[in-house]
Amino acid sequence: MTVTEFVDGPLWYFALAVFFLGIAWRLVVILANGWRGDLSRPRRSGLTGSVRALFSRFAPAPGIGRRIGLHLTGGYLFHLGLFALLLFAAPHVAFYAERLSLPAWQPMPHWAFVLVSELAFIGLMLLWLNRVLNPVTRLISSTGDHLSSILTFLVMLSGCLALEQAHEPLRVLHFFLVEVLMIYFPFSSLMHAFTFVLSREALGYRYGRRGVPV
């Protein structure tokens, strides 16, 4: 079996399995902790609070925004860029259609693809540099956090190096790194892509009951 065959075949299915089973397992274990009930009399609906918190936390809290310009710029550029690339880059759309049998949708034009990559790169680099250079994040970051940054960077870098789509080895390299990232994902803080919902819900519910705008 050649390297290409291995990356395209067994490793891909293994990565898929680890990715989905890992995520499911992690969410199940979190929820299995159960909820400590609250017997206090609510002032307002906790449910409304949790729905609010789910969306309100996309914007910085009043008065905090001016202190976290770098987080905001980097965070938004990276995350929006990443989602746009993941969902609308032409090679990705073709991939989903071919390998996951999804109906193909309209990809973004090449110029947008390039522009979005640039923005996503700036965002990721700002976040990563902040993690390494800011005394606060230096103190609280774990090896896992740094690994997440490096892996994400390598995936994006290999993707952009393969942009010409003319050389099989570059595609295989990109795909291999994606698989490594997928295997790493459920074990890492990258899981925040899912857990943020639970966390915001819990907070929104707690303070929503108390009538505090979350």
């Binding site: 640039e118 952009c160 190096l161 393969a162 942009l163 050389h167």
Partner: peptide
């Protein structure tokens, strides 16, 4: 391969 990757990376 290296040249293609370098060109794309450099342009980006």
């Amino acid at each position: 391969v290296i040249a293609s990757a370098s060109k794309e990376g450099h342009n980006l």
